[in-house]
Design a protein around this nucleic acid. Sequence first.
DNA 1: CGAGAGTCCTGAAGGC
DNA 2: TGCCTTCAGGACTCTC
Length: 271
Amino acid sequence: MPELPEVETTRRGLLKAVRGSTITGVTVRERRLRWPVPAELPHVLEGATVRDLSRRGKYLLWHFDHGFLLSHLGMSGSLTAYRQAPAPVPHDHLDLRFESGCVVRYHDPRRFGAMLWIQGTEPRHVLLDGLGPEPLMRGFSGQALYRASRHKRVAIKNFIMDARVVVGVGNIYASESLFHAGIDPRKPAGRVSAARYDRLADAIRKTLRSAVRAGGSSLRNYVGANGEPGHFQLATMCYDRAGEPCRVCRQPIRSLRQGQRSTFFCAHCQT
DNA sequence: CGAGAGTCCTGAAGGC
DNA sequence: TGCCTTCAGGACTCTC
């Protein structure tokens, strides 16, 4: 479900409710996520005040005076802030209760997400080591992609989904960005020109920015922090459109599997 | 080392 | 209706 725009939408939605607020209680109903929820999590969070909520790639970092809560939504996770929480439903794995009465609830049917604790004043964690540049910040450019891609035989689509290259480009936005840049997703990364990487970097920025503006994607079951679905699915050029006519040239959109993931592209517009 | 496959898990959808 | 297979927004970890 969540790619960078969904995580950013979640962050913005939660920020007003949680920044400056103190946690009064933590309920863990299911510890078995991607990694076990640390047993000490309720103890370290109760009484702590959220100083900030930031994002690194698809990770959310909750800042406290003595450490950080590192959360990831995985494939099917969501974080929702309730002024008054309804009764928990299946897969509501964790609640953060605030002194205001607000409850932030983590829901994740597939349990590929994570809730981890980083002790200390620096947000250092192996999961954050080696992450590439943020696509919506300085440091990300066509030139950076070009440099990182030399001598790489991996397909360009898999290359831009590698978090060491650039963070936050998931399966939907990888296909969409390559469509906008006119690049065949099967092309070896090392054989794409610098000029085309400039186009691709622009396409990634534009695709992600417009999805953030739209409040994230709403494919299948995405809901944001306020429970509202996103609207990105209305605008996909190729993702999930196999057999349907390309919106530019009317040739049928093709699909294939790359690294166990579905890719969608237009063989006429993308070369 | 790089590249590709396997893995965790539940639920929805489609075929028969 | 029911059973089975396939697929789903991620990404770490293993194998070759």
